[in-house]
Nucleic acid binder design. Structure first.
Lengths: 146, 146
DNA sequence: TATTGTTATACTCTATAACTATA
DNA sequence: TATAGTTATAGAGTATAACAATA
């Protein structure tokens, strides 16, 4: 058990190396116009949470308010995100996905799903099921906020 | 199966968010003097590969040669890394861990192991075993180089 | 001519500070 | 006075360019 924890820790460490993460992001956003590794979290966060203010979205994805709003502007220029006045609070601006933005998210999700599915194609379905469950627990323990 | 791939992909995406990765690195290097989130890959890479030149180490950890040598200098100043002339090639410099560097790596490995062990404490040993196996496969598929 | 280590330089990502408008 | 959005500015992290020494 401890031996497994050590091995898992090592594998995890390798997986978290900047180069691997960057490479994966590149693969995900390669075919999608207007999104890159930096704006990806903003777009996918918006998809997860639905229409939200920049402040709330920033909290969700763990980025600063100022960065979030700037990336949102980039995505808006690319036609993937829309801004609208908040009816309840004149200070606030609601960010939302455009239909094109939704399509982009869909495409990236499918790409990631395909990569994972391919990577797990040699594993038994029962193993995959266990893996999914334990991975979720690991995330909960490692990133309590998310 | 496809459903699991989707779920795994989503969890994975969350895990790779910059904020989570940075937070984990901070936890790992918190108690260790002279190491931070940026120099960590250099130190742990050196532990994995043993004494190596900056160029070779850079390849291993997916960083640029110039960055690797600069971080190595930082670690050297902290007393964790040593430089020595290469006997076979006068151009080359061999980087290695000092005893203190080895202790630092040991401490960080133990910390990561403890975090993972804790995160998996609610899972059955058989589940953990499966998880370790599938995770390794996933890494192999995602990061062929590592 | 190619490669090693290194430094100088520039670019990108992210955060802090500051400004405006509204609560 | 506090908060939302935004812009200006500064700080890290990283890569590209350039240099000296050796192969």
């Amino acid at each position: 058990m401890t031996a497994h924890a050590e091995q898992i820790a090592t594998t995890f460490g390798a997986l978290l190396l900047r180069t691997n993460r960057a490479h994966l992001y590149d693969r995900l956003t390669a075919g999608v116009d207007g999104v890159d590794g930096t704006t990806y979290p903003v777009l996918s966060g918006l998809a997860r949470t639905g229409p939200a203010t920049a402040s709330r979205l920033a909290e969700l994805i763990g980025l600063d308010r100022t960065v979030t709003t700037r990336y949102a502007t980039r995505l808006q220029k690319a036609g993937l995100v829309a801004r609208a006045a908040d009816a309840d609070d004149a200070r606030a601006t609601r960010l939302s996905l455009t239909p094109e933005g939704r399509r982009a998210v869909q495409a990236m999700r499918a790409a990631l799903g395909a990569i994972v599915a391919d990577a797990l194609s040699t594993s038994e379905p029962e193993e995959v099921e266990v893996f999914a469950r334990v991975l979720q627990r690991l995330l909960d323990a490692l990133a309590p906020g998310a």
